[in-house]
Computed example of a mutant assay.
Amino acid sequence: MNLFRSTAVVLALTTGFLALPAMAEQTNQSGDPTYTLEAPPAWAMLGDLIIARPLLIATTIIGAGAFVISLPFTAAGGNIGEAGKALVVDPGKEAFVRCLGCTESGYKQKQPE
């Protein structure tokens, strides 16, 4: 392949991959307007309950152990807060604060219709 074709292919693939998140925000996966982030489908809730939550809880426990082991090194580096947030708080927040089947964590109030 010559240089022009290679460059054109790389630019086309890059543009396509960069457009995917924008397209995903405009429509949901099922195409049904009923299934939004605030009202996920039953299969997403079931998968979250059976697969994702136990893995996230295990990740939180393993992260807490890794945080304790790395504590002398993070204390010497002065980034205890960042290590605790990355290893313990973020997985714990995803495991315990996120609604069942939702993709974003945190409490949100529903807007009145």
Rank of each mutant, 00 (worst) to 15 (best):
M1L: 10
N2Q: 05
F4G: 03
F4E: 14
F4S: 14
F4N: 10
R5K: 09
R5V: 10
R5M: 09
S6G: 09
T7P: 00
A8W: 05
V9Y: 03
V9H: 02
A12D: 02
A12Y: 00
L13F: 10
A19L: 06
P21R: 00
A22T: 01
A22C: 01
A22E: 01
M23H: 02
M23C: 00
A24S: 12
E25R: 03
E25F: 03
Q26P: 01
T27R: 04
Q29R: 06
G31C: 09
G31D: 06
G31L: 06
G31E: 08
P33T: 13
T34W: 14
T34Y: 15
Y35K: 01
L37W: 14
L37Q: 14
P40D: 10
P41L: 04
P41W: 09
P41G: 07
A44L: 15
M45L: 12
L46G: 06
L46M: 13
L46W: 14
G47F: 11
D48G: 06
I50A: 15
I51F: 14
I51D: 12
I51V: 15
A52N: 06
A52W: 14
R53H: 12
R53E: 03
P54A: 05
P54I: 08
L55N: 11
I57P: 06
I57C: 13
A58N: 04
T60I: 02
T60Q: 05
I61D: 05
I62F: 08
I62A: 14
G65V: 10
G65A: 13
G65N: 06
A66R: 11
F67V: 04
V68M: 13
I69T: 13
P72Y: 08
P72I: 05
F73V: 09
F73N: 05
F73Q: 08
T74G: 00
T74R: 05
A75Q: 14
G77E: 12
G78S: 04
G78R: 02
N79A: 09
N79W: 15
N79E: 04
N79F: 15
G81N: 04
G81H: 06
E82M: 11
E82D: 07
A83R: 08
A83L: 13
A83I: 07
G84C: 08
K85F: 15
L87E: 12
L87C: 13
V88D: 06
V88M: 12
V88T: 05
V89Y: 09
P91T: 08
K93T: 10
A95V: 03
F96W: 10
V97C: 02
V97M: 11
V97L: 07
C99K: 09
C99E: 09
G101P: 11
G101R: 10
C102R: 09
T103M: 03
T103S: 07
E104A: 10
E104I: 11
E104W: 07
S105R: 03
S105M: 06
G106N: 05
Y107T: 04
Y107G: 08
K108V: 07
K108W: 11
K108A: 13
Q109P: 04
Q111R: 08
Q111C: 03
Q111G: 03
E113H: 07
E113S: 12
